[in-house]
Design a protein around this nucleic acid. Structure first.
Lengths: 113, 113
DNA sequence: ATAACAATTGAATATATATTCAATTGTATG
DNA sequence: CATACAATTGAATATATATTCAATTGTTAT
């Protein structure tokens, strides 16, 4: 963020649709998926709404930890919550997230060959 | 027990092709894109091979910082390096990464509407 | 109201990591 | 060889963050 040591003329780079704000927003989403526990939690909600305790039990994580992570995921709008009685069900917020994860899985699987 | 008190027809958790090792590997890749500086660096190499100093100047980052980040990106196989004379050119390692970033950009842009 | 269940929240901590600065390696050219 | 240019590397630091534990809020039923 500070002024770099070497300052010279900046050659033109391709301008992608990414201003600084969008870049940070994008990075925040990737960061959310960049933690193994959170990635497991998100993938657990891919197939449909899941309760917090359900996710925690399935993944072998504490309910507290899962809740903490879900709060972050909700703040980044990667998942959304709906209360049904005592339980709160979480699901992926939209399809892009699912596709992104699918693409990355393809990336990892192709690397394995 | 087996039958829950509340009537919630919960299908079993989806078994994705994600064992623990793959999950960590996936998360590592997302983590690489989860830092704004690194995300800018990767997007700078999307259109073609770029030299380290070129990237640093274009993004307003120090050469040292860019090199540190490129080392991590190379270790995760998100970018690859090729030396040409004094300069070292980096490019995205394969197309999956480009598609993942494109999908996330779509995600962010749709949110803006 | 009390009890049991589900989830959130806050504090505390241990670890990870992004960035800077200085020194060093690699490369071409005088 | 020496000098300049390009990039890497290591150390040091400041900040971020993942996880745990205890306490609390919200919900349903007795």
């Amino acid at each position: 963020m500070a002024t770099p040591k070497t300052a010279s003329a900046a050659p033109p780079l391709p301008d992608l649709p990414l201003d600084d704000d969008k870049t940070v927003e994008l990075a925040d989403m990737f960061k959310m998926l960049g933690d193994p526990s959170r990635l497991r939690i998100v993938t657990a909600t891919l197939a449909g709404p899941r309760a917090v305790g359900e996710i925690a039990a399935a993944l072998g994580l504490s309910v507290s930890l899962v809740s903490h992570h879900l709060r972050l995921l909700r703040a980044t709008r990667l998942v959304s919550a709906e209360r049904r009685g005592k339980q709160v069900f979480y699901r992926v917020h939209d399809q892009h997230v699912a596709r992104v994860i699918a693409d990355m899985i393809a990336h990892v699987n192709e690397d394995a060959e």
